[in-house]
Design a binder for these strands. Structure first.
Lengths: 196, 196
DNA sequence: CCTACCGATCGGTAGG
DNA sequence: CCTACCGATCGGTAGG
């Protein structure tokens, strides 16, 4: 570890810092992410950590972006090749529930960032949730047009409901509220996608 | 304001501190609640504030209890006189959605406490959510026994779903995600209580 | 990437 | 209930 690293080396370090931030924020919330804590975990000086980002707010923003990327990779990507509509929606729900229970789950990172003192961070989180909900609503609309959902289905409501189930499942798993949470999520999502 | 107040005066002060904590935690999260901030807001010394509780953790626990009390007063109490079952469940949902959009709403206080460094605080929050969900499940069971819900209804799933909708609605209102959130919540809760 | 340092603020205590 | 103070830690900077 030389004091002046190569560009590639610096980028590797940078990535390590972001990944550690996401991991910490996911289990303990962003309140637990401090310069001192990161430096200790990564065996670096505080200056070495913050030097890559300038401010903690900038690091937090990068961590939020990384968490969104992880979510997309785990939930959207595996379903993206399916035809739009009900089938893709079902695949999304399937991977979503799996993701919620996996070690890779970093959803708590985003829900904790909701309370960030930085309005920029809060806006990034809000946009992520809104964007994802919009995508779900588009899929619901496509499914509706294809006749795969009952005529009276409200695409926005359906998107809202799927998001609500996922949010509550994440909370239940984090707090240890309900060992059946994942099974409930699967049943409720399936039921939401079925006729009423 | 005498240095040594009467017992009644001290209790009034104590309550003011707790109420201010709940208010702060509801809008900015518990991370934003510090001794210095409370002292400034209440025009007291830090020692005067913390003296009533001993530690910040104890104050946080009282604030969580107070938030639960407020929720119960706003959502359960107005429905408590209804007969158990579907009618009471519907009344609860009605007041619940109203509460989510009201100034009195302190739900964010509880969701922010989920990430508390204190396991005691986290346990108190978990118990509150679990207890409320259990109450809802009991109501659903009563409604089912009375024939007010379809035979295939899973009371636990129904309770989970209602909680999920409320959680997502609170998030949407806080983050300004969806101006229709309250209307969606009403529709989705009503639909959950109807036949499938 | 480090050491050395900064002012500000944290929760909390002593003593009255 | 206050003043006065404590050690620890916060995010961040200077300089190399």
């Amino acid at each position: 570890m030389s004091p002046r690293q190569s560009l590639a080396g610096a980028q590797r370090t940078r990535r390590k810092i972001i990944d550690r931030t996401v991991a910490l924020a996911s289990t303990e919330g962003f309140e637990a992410v401090t310069l001192g804590r990161l430096a200790g975990d990564l065996q670096m000086s505080k200056a070495g950590v913050i030097g890559h980002f300038g401010t903690m707010e900038a690091l937090e923003l990068e961590a939020v972006a990384r968490a969104i990327e992880r979510f997309t990779d785990a939930v959207w990507q595996p379903a993206a090749d399916k035809p739009p509509g009900r089938e893709r929606l079902a695949a999304i729900c399937d991977h979503w529930v799996r993701y919620l229970g996996s070690d890779a789950y970093v959803g708590a990172c985003l829900t904790s960032a909701e309370h960030s003192p930085s309005s920029t961070v809060r806006a990034a989180v809000a946009e992520a949730f809104a964007g994802w909900r919009a995508l779900l609503a588009r899929e619901a609309k496509a499914a509706l047009a294809a006749g795969d959902l009952p005529d009276e289905t409200n695409p926005g409501d359906l998107a809202f409901e799927l998001g609500a189930i996922a949010l509550a499942t994440g909370q239940a798993l984090r707090l240890g509220l309900d060992r059946q949470a994942k099974a409930r999520a699967r049943r409720l999502m399936r039921s939401a996608l079925a006729a009423r």
